[in-house]
Design a protein around this nucleic acid. Structure first.
Lengths: 339, 339
DNA sequence: CTGAAAGCGCTTACAG
DNA sequence: CTGAAAGCGCTTACAG
C-alpha cells in the first residue's frame, strides 16, 4: 500500500502538481474541465493529501483545540461530538484539552500546547470563557478563538450561546402551568454570567403570571451535588416550603432529590424538581428527574464552524479587516421527561 | 513572536542542526558537554520542535487514535484522560474517534481517517476489540494497536485488562460478607468476553463459601438501563427473590433500583444492589449505589504507554522481530460507597 | 562524536 | 487558466 502523493495524481492527470493543489484547496481559476479530470483521478486513487506536508508548507496545523473544565462528562461528550462534526466537515483535526481554570500553570501549559501542537484556533467553554487573563493571553498571541458561553454583551469576540433567560423562563412557566406558585430557584456559581440570566428568566416568568417574587425562595449553589443538598435543605425546611424547585443543573437537582428523600417528602406528589442539562443522571434516577435539554452539541458544532470560517477570513484578508463578532442564539427546547 | 527553529538553536549553540536533532530525539552518540550546551539553549529559547516538520520528515504523525463506542460518558472521559496522560508524556497528540461498531461504513471511515490523519497507532476499546473484521483490517494495514479489553487468551496482540473474574469474585464476596446467601447476577451483553468472566467470578465466590449455585439467579442483560429493569423484574418477582443483586454495570443497577422502588422493596433494608463502574450516576442516586471502581484511567494510560513503546520498537528493529504481547492485569479496587 | 546534502509532500510567490 | 522554482523545518542516509 504505497502512499499516493499529489505528484502521482498530477502525472496521471497530465497536469502540474500545483494545479492539483488548486483543486484540493478549492481555489478559483481552474477550468471546469481540468478540475473535473483531476477530481476523477483523485477519486480513482483515493488520494488524501498529507496533512503534515500541508501544515508545514502553509504554516497552519489544520488543528482546532477544545478547552474545557467541567465535571459533567455527558456535557463534555456532547461538546466534543459537536466540534468534531465541524472538524470532520472541513478537514480539521481536534485536540482536546481538559484543564483546570484555577491552576496557576494553566497559561504556561497552554503556551506549550500552542507552541508544540500549533493549533490554528481554540474553542473555549465556561469557566475559561470568563478568564480575562487567558483571553488576554490569546489576544496578545493573536490566536483566534470562539466562545461557547452565556450571552455577555461586554464580549466583542465571536461566541455562540443559548438564551439563558429564555431557558429559565420557559422552565418556570412549565412549573407554573402545573399549578405551582411557590417555586424555589437554586442558582449556579455566582461569578458565572449565566447565573444572573437564569434569575432574570425566573423573575420574568413570575411577573408574567402575577406571582410575587420572594427572595427567600432563591438560593445560591455552585453546580455541585453537595451544594444542591445544602440548598435543598434551606428551601425545604422553611415554614412555607416551595412546592417546586428549579435547579440550575442536574447535579444540584439530584442533591435536592436526596434531601427530599431524607425528609420523607414524596416526589413528585409533594414536590416537583426540575433540573437543567438533561444528563443521563436525570434519566436513570428514581423517580425520573424533569430536566431541560441544553443543545450543547449543536452549539459546539456552530462554534467549530464559526472558528473555521474565522480562520479562513484570517487568511484571505490577512488581518486587514476587523471581524464582526457573530452571535448565534438558540432557545432551549423546554423541559423534557415528565416526573 | 517569531518562531524559533532548530537552525536558530544550532547557530546559538555553535553546532549543526543535525546535532540539535540528536538531542531532541534523545539519540545516543552525543558528547555530554554538547548535549548540555544544546539543552541549555533549547531551554533559554523555549524551543519546541515543529511537529508538522517532524512528521513529514520522519513519516510518522506523532498522533495516537482512540476508538470507542460506549454510551457511558464518564467511562469515555476517564479513558481519554488516561491516554492523554501517556500522550503528553511522550509528545504525542491524540485523535479521538467516537464510532459505531455495527455501522457498515466503520471500516471505510477508519480507512479515510488513517489516510488523512496518518495516526501512528490506535487504542481500541470494547466492542471494537472483538470486531474481527476491524482487527484484520488493521493487521493487513500493519497499523499498530493496543486493546483495552477483558483478558482473552486467544488474542496474541498487546492488551491491557482488568481481571474480570477477580473483580466479580470480590464484589460477590463483599455481599456474602454482609450475610447475603441468595445473590442475583445480571450479566452484560452475551458476546462480550468479560461476561463469562464475571459469571465465573460469581461462581467461584459462591463455591468458596459453600453456597449452592442457582441458575435462576443469573439473568442476561445488555448493559442498558432498560435491560436492568427487565432483569430486575425477573429476579425480584421470583417466589424466593434474591436479597442482593450484582449488576455488571451501573446503568443496569440503576434499572434494578427503579424496579425495587416500583415494587416497594426498600433499599438497602430489603435488598442490596451492587453496580460496576463507579459512574457519577451511582454517587448521585438516592439511595447511593454501591459500586465497584473500574480503574479505567490507569488502564488507558498503560495502554497508551504500551502503544508508544511498541511504536518505538517498531522503528528500531524495523519489524524484523515479533513483539511480545504484553499484558497488564490490574485488580479492581473492590466495592466503594456503601449503601 | 559530528556534519553536509538531499528529501519528505505540500504551498507560496512569481511568471506567463 | 497553468506551471517551474524555491522553501516550510525537520530527519534520513551517508561520510568522516
Amino acid at each position: 500500500m504505497k502512499k499516493i502523493t499529489m505528484q502521482d495524481v498530477a502525472e496521471r492527470a497530465g497536469v502540474s502538481s500545483k494545479t492539483v493543489s488548486r483543486v484540493i484547496n478549492n481555489e478559483p481559476r481552474v477550468s471546469e474541465s481540468t478540475r473535473k479530470k483531476i477530481q476523477q483521478v483523485i477519486d480513482e486513487l483515493n488520494f488524501q493529501p498529507n496533512k503534515s506536508a500541508q501544515s508545514l508548507a502553509a504554516d497552519r496545523s489544520l488543528l482546532l483545540g477544545l478547552l474545557y473544565d467541567n465535571p459533567s462528562s455527558a456535557y463534555i461528550i456532547n461538546l466534543q461530538a459537536g466540534v468534531l462534526d465541524a472538524c470532520n466537515e472541513f478537514g480539521y483535526g481536534l485536540v482536546i484539552h481538559p484543564c483546570e481554570n484555577n491552576s496557576p500553570d494553566l497559561l504556561p501549559k497552554l503556551r506549550n500546547l500552542l507552541a508544540s501542537s500549533r493549533m490554528d484556533g481554540l474553542v473555549l467553554t465556561p469557566p475559561m470563557t470568563e478568564n480575562r487573563q487567558l483571553l488576554d493571553f490569546l489576544d496578545s498571541n493573536s490566536t483566534p478563538y470562539v466562545l461557547i458561553t452565556p450571552l455577555n454583551l461586554e464580549q466583542s469576540c465571536p461566541l455562540v450561546s443559548i438564551d439563558d433567560v429564555m431557558a429559565a423562563r420557559q422552565s418556570i412557566q412549565h412549573l407554573i402551568d402545573f399549578g405551582h406558585k411557590r417555586i424555589g430557584l437554586i442558582l449556579g456559581a455566582r461569578e458565572r454570567s449565566g447565573t444572573e440570566m437564569r434569575l432574570l428568566g425566573y423573575q420574568q416568568a413570575l411577573e408574567e403570571n402575577n406571582i410575587p417574587f420572594d427572595e427567600g425562595l432563591v438560593v445560591q449553589g455552585d453546580f455541585t451535588f453537595e451544594s444542591g443538598v445544602t440548598a435543598g435543605l434551606q428551601l425545604l425546611r422553611q415554614p412555607q416550603p416551595p412546592t417546586a424547585i428549579f435547579a440550575s443543573n442536574d447535579y444540584m437537582a439530584a442533591g435536592v432529590m436526596k434531601v427530599a428523600s431524607q425528609l420523607r417528602i414524596s416526589i413528585p406528589y409533594e414536590l416537583s424538581v426540575c433540573g437543567f442539562d438533561d444528563t443521563p443522571v436525570a434519566r436513570y434516577m428514581t423517580p425520573t428527574l424533569t430536566t431541560v435539554r441544553h443543545p450543547v452539541e449543536q452549539l459546539a458544532q456552530h462554534a467549530g464552524e464559526l472558528l473555521i470560517r474565522k480562520l479562513k477570513k484570517h487568511l484571505e484578508r490577512s488581518e486587514s479587516e476587523e471581524l464582526h463578532s457573530e452571535l448565534i442564539v438558540r432557545e432551549s427546547t423546554g423541559p423534557v421527561a415528565k416526573p
